[in-house]
Design a protein around this nucleic acid. Sequence first.
DNA 1: GTACCTGCAAAGCTTTTGCAACTGG
DNA 2: CCAGTTGCAAAAGCTTTGCAGGTAC
Lengths: 133, 133
Amino acid sequence: MHNKPNHRTTQQRMVILEELKKVKTHPAADEIYKMVRKRLPRISLGTVYRNLEVLSGLKKIQEVDIVENLKRFDGNPENHYHIRCMKCGRIDDAPFGLENDLEKKMRPLTDYTIISHRLEFIGICPGCSSKDK
Amino acid sequence: MHNKPNHRTTQQRMVILEELKKVKTHPAADEIYKMVRKRLPRISLGTVYRNLEVLSGLKKIQEVDIVENLKRFDGNPENHYHIRCMKCGRIDDAPFGLENDLEKKMRPLTDYTIISHRLEFIGICPGCSSKDK
DNA sequence: GTACCTGCAAAGCTTTTGCAACTGG
DNA sequence: CCAGTTGCAAAAGCTTTGCAGGTAC
């Protein structure tokens, strides 16, 4: 049995969090690195990655895509929804019709020209939940 | 001005498409490579990648995530929706409340334990649409 | 015949990791 | 004090690409 690590509030970790909270964009690690380096010129990219992971774990921030860094392909070219297992990464089609109202509701709220939307459910697949026991 | 390339129906391209249509999983390139290699042992991984791109362009298949291959981080840890520009990759928060009904509607339709969901709109941001002119 | 494709290998990018030195509590 | 962090550099993925030789049409 392992205890959770006791996370420390290092200067690097604080600055990364502060800089990320400051912007309304959704920067990738490299951009965050550049932002943080203005205040901590000697910080390393590895530290940025490690802290982003820690901060996500602490729910202080989140990753925009849960997606592991792999392109995945679907033999069905029609828009449809997916459900993804958070334990094993398995992806199934969601037995769920398209919610076309979503785009209609969104249009008046944004300056973007809406073209499409994606909906993904996140859960635990039958295989993984039986393993939990 | 360039013309679109005239795509050819090579054996490699056909087999990749057939194998991907056969499965209901959503395999990554490497898995597709393994599947295809059973029928075409000399095919290369590069060819698989190139054909997946061509087939996506032809809308014969689709990528599950439009996401460029970069993790992105959000200083806001609460669930909320995003809108992504298909031209420049910019991501903004969507001014759109959570649709909690979606999970409620999904639960009876699946064996997965639903934990959360993600909704992302895809469109063209104001900056990119003005450039279109 | 020639534009398009392929296999191979090398290069490119992003992310992760081993390690020795350092530091917050 | 010492578990947790850091910087650095190397390693490890996954994906893209240059090239010379094939191939569909």
